[in-house]
Structures are given as structure tokens and as C-alpha cells.
Computed example of a mutant assay.
Amino acid sequence: MSSPTVLVVAKAPVPGLAKTRLAAHVGDDRAADFAAAALLDTLDAARATGWRVVVSMTGDLDAAARAEELREALADLEVVQQRGDGFGERLVNAHADADAGHGVVQVGMDTPQVTAAQLREAGELLSEHPAVLGHAEDGGWWLLALRSAEDARPLADVPMSTSHTGRDTEAVLPLPIALVQEARDVDEWQDAFMIASAFVHLRASAVIREAMPR
């Protein structure tokens, strides 16, 4: 199978709107800075695959933290605007926008520790499986790879951001499903602290270290 497309689903990291649970601990500006850094880290991994990269974006990038740096990082990538009423519907449309007939490997911006090798592994699994899923520790999922954008349609009816979103998503995917390693995504301070401790090279980790008591 030809190389798939990496799809990064992202939200402009605007202070007050980005990482609100993390913001309760570190403040709106630092939480938005973390979200921007996490997106930049994710884009690095996506670009390092050597595959086509599509970024499905929502929000006001002009008002975002690190707006200039983000615009520079996005300049050589394909950026499409998210469309749809709910997040599930926006995911369905994002897969349709990114699909070039060779499969789509989708991640968000909540797992800045993702590597190009992990994305490539998911893409390779698509040669033998119609769907690949990476569960998140909080019950959601952090990676979804599909051979056909048509198989993303059931996501419109899956409740998102729940403790059972991962299980519900797995239940509607075509069989056989390949599972990749579970990962921690960042919503709370403890998540960010764990990521910063384990992946010290990340931009996102540097933001969290600055927020730690000295």
C-alpha cells in the first residue's frame, strides 16, 4: 500500500479556550502556551514520517499563543478548516478531507510525545487491517488510522470526551482492528507533569518545567 496521510486534528491554542483543566493549575496563558508547544511537537512527528500531512484546524490562530511560530510550522502543510456541528461530525469530515485513497493516520494535539515511528507503525498496520486504534489512559483514544474515510462515518454517533469513548469507538470500527500502545493524553496538571518528566526533549515539557515550583 502507498504511504497514508497523517491527519492532525487541532484547535488554535487561544488563552482561555485551550486546555482549560490544565489552566486551573497553571493559568490561561501558560495552558495555551503548552497547547501551542504540544501542537508544534506533534507537527514535528507528523512531518518526520515523510508522508503527506493534513492539519484540520479550528479556532482563531491570530489570537493563539505562539501564533507566528505556528503559522511558520503550518506553512508547508495542507491546512483545512474543520466543519460540522459536533466533534464527531468534524472528525468524519476531517477524514474525508484528508483521504487520498491510501489511508489516514489521525492524531490530535494532546499527545506531544507521539513519534514518527508510532505513526509509521499505524500506517504499516493498515496494510493488513482496515482500522488501527490507540486507546488513551483516560478511556478515550489518541490515534485512529483508517484505510477508508467511509469507515469514519460512525464516529458522528460516538459520544466524545467520555470515559468510554475508546470502547465505543472500537465497537463501530471495521474488523479486524489492530491496537497500538496505549498512551497518556494531557488534560490535567498530573498528565502534563508525567509527560514533562518522561519526555524532557519536548517543547511542551519545557513549558511545564517552567510552571513547576522551584
Rank of each mutant, 00 (worst) to 15 (best):
G108T: 04
L146A: 05
A136I: 06
G166I: 00
A122M: 03
S2I: 12
D99H: 10
D99P: 12
S161V: 14
T162Y: 03
V8R: 00
D85Y: 12
D138V: 01
A10N: 03
A98V: 06
A12P: 08
A136T: 07
F34N: 05
L74S: 04
D157H: 10
A24D: 10
A63C: 09
G16C: 10
R120T: 13
A94K: 06
V14G: 10
R203G: 09
E210P: 12
G101H: 05
A96F: 03
A183Q: 14
D110A: 14
H201L: 12
R52P: 12
V207W: 04
E210K: 14
S197D: 15
Q190F: 13
D99I: 09
D191H: 11
S197P: 09
D60T: 04
A204R: 01
L202Y: 02
A122D: 00
L175G: 09
L173I: 08
A32C: 06
E182A: 11
V79L: 02
L155Y: 00
V180Y: 03
P159S: 03
W51N: 07
V132R: 01
A45N: 08
V186T: 09
D44V: 11
A36W: 02
D41N: 04
Q81M: 14
A152V: 08
A24L: 10
A37G: 04
P130G: 02
Q118S: 11
A45Q: 02
R167Y: 09
R52V: 12
S163D: 14
M1W: 09
A32V: 08
R52H: 15
P13V: 06
R214T: 14
T42F: 02
W189C: 09
P174L: 01
G139E: 02
D76W: 07
D157A: 15
V26L: 09
V92W: 03
D44Y: 04
K11M: 15
A94M: 05
V79D: 00
V132A: 03
Q113E: 13
A48Q: 05
R167E: 13
A75Q: 08
D191Y: 07
V6K: 02
G50L: 01
